[in-house]
């Protein structure tokens, strides 16, 4: 928003210097301009389009059956929040550029250099300071939201739950994940070392993962759970999730690991507790604890 930039017409005459206009009055004056109204409309339309696009984005994310864990739900919520708070900024930016491009303020075609210069506006402290404050506030909000959500999903990965819910007293399961060119191996040390290449986990039970690699860097990505951690040779990394949805979901390798990286994928089967127990028994495991 800028201070009055239109010359007073002859009828209006020079403004009274002592008659100090309020900011609201200036704003209303500004709104009377043709371009002001159009810019506001454009901003609204573009922002709305962007918000609609975020629904499409999350629709894409859920096409293979997610969200299957609280972590994934938080990620999708965060997508919405980030997109929505950025929407006005995106709208304003594209609206001004678009309006200028389609000649809202006029334009000059052909190869003859324009003979008339634009207004010599070199600065506008309301615009610059306002913009800086707005963007900084936005960034601060994004940071705070991000930090809180990060703490949240880390807590979920550790099997605990958010502060406003009941603490989770269920038994947890530890799985040792080994990446190796180009297979995943899952070992269940608590269940008498059951080993499998398709992950099987019971629903609503916290699963912890210790992840390592026998050769190069892989990345353990349980797609619909929203969980990803690199499998590094010579180091153990940790993550975890609690499945909230029965079904079969995808595990992929998300770090280029050599020739057959593309085929380094497997599945996670989320089953009921009973099914899980019988699966463990069938595989020669004992529920130790």
């Amino acid at each position: 928003m800028t201070i009055d930039q239109r010359p007073p017409t002859a009828e209006e005459g020079p403004e009274e210097p002592t008659n100090r206009p309020t900011p609201m009055h200036l704003f209303r004056n500004w709104l009377k301009r043709r371009y002001a109204k159009r810019l506001i409309w454009l901003t609204l339309i573009i922002s709305a389009g962007w918000i609609a696009a975020t629904f499409l984005a999350v629709y894409f994310m859920n096409m293979s059956g997610g969200p299957a864990s609280a972590i994934m739900s938080e990620i999708e919520l965060t997508m919405y929040v980030l997109a929505w708070v950025c929407a006005p900024l995106m709208g304003v930016t594209l609206a001004i550029a678009l309006y200028s491009m389609i000649g809202g303020w006029g334009r000059v075609k052909g190869d003859k250099q324009p003979d008339q210069d634009g207004p010599g506006i070199r600065n506008n402290s309301i615009a610059t300071i306002g913009w800086a404050v707005w963007v900084s506030a936005l960034a601060a909000f994004l940071v705070v939201w991000g930090l809180v959500e990060l703490a949240n999903i880390q807590a979920f990965a550790n099997g605990s739950v958010a502060a406003n819910q009941q603490p989770n007293s269920q038994q947890s399961i530890t799985v040792n994940v080994t990446g190796q060119q180009w297979v995943w191996t899952f070992a269940y040390p608590d269940q008498n070392k059951v080993t499998t290449d398709v992950l099987v986990v019971p629903i609503n039970t916290p699963i912890y993962f210790n992840v390592t690699s026998k050769d190069v860097v892989h990345s353990f990505w349980v797609v619909e759970m929203g969980v990803k951690i690199d499998a590094n040779p010579g180091a153990i990394t940790n993550t975890g999730f609690t499945a909230t949805k029965l079904g079969t979901f995808n595990i992929r390798c998300a770090e280029l690991c050599g020739l057959h990286h593309a085929y380094m994928e497997t599945q996670v089967k989320v089953v009921t507790q009973d099914e899980y127990n019988s699966w463990v028994r069938e595989n020669g495991g004992v529920r130790l604890s």
Binding site: Y35, G103, W105, K109, P114, G118, P119, N124
Partner: peptide, 12 residues
């Protein structure tokens, strides 16, 4: 960028 475009007549 936006401020420079503001109220200018672009030569296309």
């Amino acid at each position: 960028m936006l401020g420079t475009m503001w109220r200018a007549r672009p030569w296309t």
